[in-house]
Design a protein around this nucleic acid. Structure first.
Lengths: 196, 196
DNA sequence: GCATGTGAAGGAATTCACAGCA
DNA sequence: TGCTGTGAATTCCTTCACATGC
């Protein structure tokens, strides 16, 4: 559903004042009635006969997603993938920011990547006081659980993991895993198959 | 559902001969009955009172996912993210392989990354004859649609895109989009919120 | 007239409960 | 006794159709 935020922001910056569920659906690869249904859960967002005001829509969705205040995240693992994330500018428009990066490898510590300086992993414990909400794990899979444990100890409340492993955390810590190989395998199923 | 393949492969390499739906569920963060239901669609996979044989399970799932023959993919965009993907060794265990990489930037062309040599994007047209099934897009978002068009022309049947844009393709070409910022925003919703 | 908002219908996925086999 | 396989019940999400308001 953050998809909607992306859509409305995109179209807002493209200069459109108002947008119909039809156009938004085309833009995101969804159906108009799905969008209307979802939006209806949050009260009145649109004007009948006109559409949704892109600017207010973006603001409202941000509030719904609790993105109205800036959210801080830290990154663990400053390898290729980690560096790519640090230099990726796409988080800012959602009010998301990576404020620190950590790595185990001494050779990487101290480097500046994407505006933040890489610190040694032992420093993770110190972020508890920095108002950080989330941790991003971009380390080799065998280290992922250990890093997650450290993040939990540092009072982080959510983890985005790129490791193909199920990560165990207390119930209060939400984990979202992005497993690229699994996604590619999924694609493969569609490609090679006939049905479904 | 490729998740299941991951799970069975992992546990197979860990030396377990047999596994119960319960343990597999714990391992993947799912429920036992969901796994049993899903497996039941494909006929008899397990032995009652015992569990599933890890080795045969992996083989069966590979066949179901059409991963029994090796699948080839090409990558477009050899920046940080693209390089990370090329050097990521996790595809092999699913029978997936990145056989070529392309970039628009002349400075990157010719480099060897993760065992493949970066070619100029103009060469995409030539892959049609190389038995490639899928294309991976790791380019800046404004170039994504153009690359997708080139891939479609090259007879590719599936696209895995890391660009935060909806990509238009003919119906025969399946697209899966991984939008990291959207996933992080989703996580944020769980973290900051109370309900759901 | 045009586009949203929403109750009702329809379908798909999940959960349950238990029968069947080692 | 332990664990799979599966029909029934449930819940959730999607789709439809139309009333409502600009």
């Amino acid at each position: 559903m953050p998809l909607y935020l992306r859509g409305s922001l995109e179209l807002a910056t493209q200069g459109a004042d108002s947008i119909s569920s039809q156009r938004l659906a085309d833009h995101l690869g969804l159906t108009p009635w799905l969008i209307r249904k979802d939006f209806s859960y949050f009260g009145d967002l649109g004007k009948r006969g006109v559409g949704y005001d892109t600017r207010t829509l973006a603001v409202r969705i941000k509030k719904i997603l609790r993105l109205n205040v800036d959210r801080r995240a830290i990154l663990v693992g400053a390898g290729r993938l980690g560096s790519a994330l640090l230099e990726y500018g796409g988080f800012g428009r959602y009010g998301l920011q990576i404020v620190a990066a950590f790595d185990r490898d001494g050779a990487r510590v101290g480097r500046m990547i994407g505006g933040v300086q890489v610190e040694h992993v032992s420093g993770i414990a110190t972020v508890a006081s920095r108002g950080v909400d989330m941790g991003i794990i971009a380390v080799p899979e065998e280290s992922a659980q250990g890093v997650a444990d450290a993040l939990v100890k540092a009072s982080i409340r959510g983890i985005l993991s790129f490791s193909p492993r199920y990560i165990v955390t207390p119930a209060r810590v939400k984990v979202i895993t992005i497993d690229i190989a699994v996604d590619l395998a999924r694609l493969c199923y569609y490609v090679a198959g006939n049905s479904r």
